[in-house]
């Protein structure tokens, strides 16, 4: 009893009304008013623009990342292509060199062959010429022999035609001939 009245009096004396669980209708009304006004103000002033620009930034970042990725794949593709091209060019160069080498080899062989053939032909020509010359010389020699024989016959006929002298004369001409 004393305790209760004490609390009641103390509460009354210090100007406090009620305890922590008391419901105050005025405060409820103020809370509703404050909160609803705050909600509308912040929605209009802050949340709308902030969330919008946040979303915009996020899409911007996402787009940038996507673009970067795309660029990277493209660059990689280009690099790969370049590498392939380079390899192809190298191959081609190698091929060209090989072809050139082959061609030159062929040319060398051909030239060698040609020169050999020409040399052979020249030798042949020379041979045939020599042969012709020999023939000619032999013919000339034959003619000369015939001439000499005729001249010798003429001489024999003019001089005394005995067999000894005849023999001697023929011998002499033969000697002359062998001397020539």
């Amino acid at each position: 009893m004393y305790a209760f009245s004490k609390i009641a009096f103390v509460a009354f004396a210090s100007g406090e009304v009620g305890g922590p669980l008391d419901v105050n209708p005025g405060l409820i009304i103020w809370t509703v008013v404050t909160f609803v006004i705050l909600l509308f103000l912040l929605k209009k002033l802050a949340w709308g623009p902030i969330l919008k620009s946040l979303g915009e930034r996020e899409t911007f970042i996402k787009d940038s990342l996507e673009k970067a990725e795309q660029a990277q794949t493209e660059a990689e593709k280009l690099l790969e292509e370049n590498k392939a091209n380079l390899a192809k060019a190298e191959d081609e160069a190698q091929k060209v060199i090989a072809q050139g080498r082959e061609y030159s080899e062929k040319l060398k062989d051909q030239m060698l062959e040609e020169s050999k053939a020409e040399a052979k032909k020249m030798i042949e020509d020379a041979k045939s010429e020599i042969e012709g010359k020999q023939k000619e010389a032999f013919n000339q020699f034959k003619e000369q022999v015939a001439d000499i024989a005729v001249q010798a016959a003429e001489k024999i006929l003019r001089e005394n035609l005995d067999s000894d002298t005849q023999k001697k004369i023929v011998q002499k001409y033969i000697d002359d001939l062998s001397k020539n």
Partner: peptide
């Protein structure tokens, strides 16, 4: 209805004003 501006109401208003200014 007792619509006094008690200290809790005042603090709520302070909070609301702070939030509006900050945001």
């Amino acid at each position: 209805i007792d619509l006094s501006i008690t200290r809790h109401v005042a603090v709520m208003w302070l909070a609301a004003i702070l939030l509006v200014l900050i945001f």
